[in-house]
Amino acid sequence: MLKKKVTLKILLLLVASDILETAIHFFFKKGALAQGELLVVDLSSAIVFLKAVFSSPFLWAGLLTVVVVFIIWSTILSKIDLSVAVPIASFSYILVPVVSVICLHEQISVLRWIGILLILAGVILVSLSSGERTEQKK
């Protein structure tokens, strides 16, 4: 009943979803940055902010990418378990900070990189535990 076998095709779909996922967050950040002067303090200013962001082309580029990722992700989830798919789709945890530094000129401290690496280590352990379960079943 459990679906665990990660084929090359599924792996390629997961890599594509990683790259597109990074693009989504880049677009969304760009969309949110375009409204830089707007200070959100309460619900009404939040609505004004969201109205402004939803008129940004970056947001719509992001949403279009979301639709593509949704299609890819639906296909992946029909083939393998959520608990196997999610960990492998996680290399965007490295991709997003790298894109943040290169394209958005954000600063990342050593401590934060350590945190990012710990998160990635956690994700890899989670992936390994899925593999371990597969071997036990054989």
């Binding site: 959100v40 958005l104 954000e106």
Partner: peptide, 8 residues
Amino acid sequence: LSRADLNF
């Protein structure tokens, strides 16, 4: 995203 860095 309007209040925090993307990487964080």
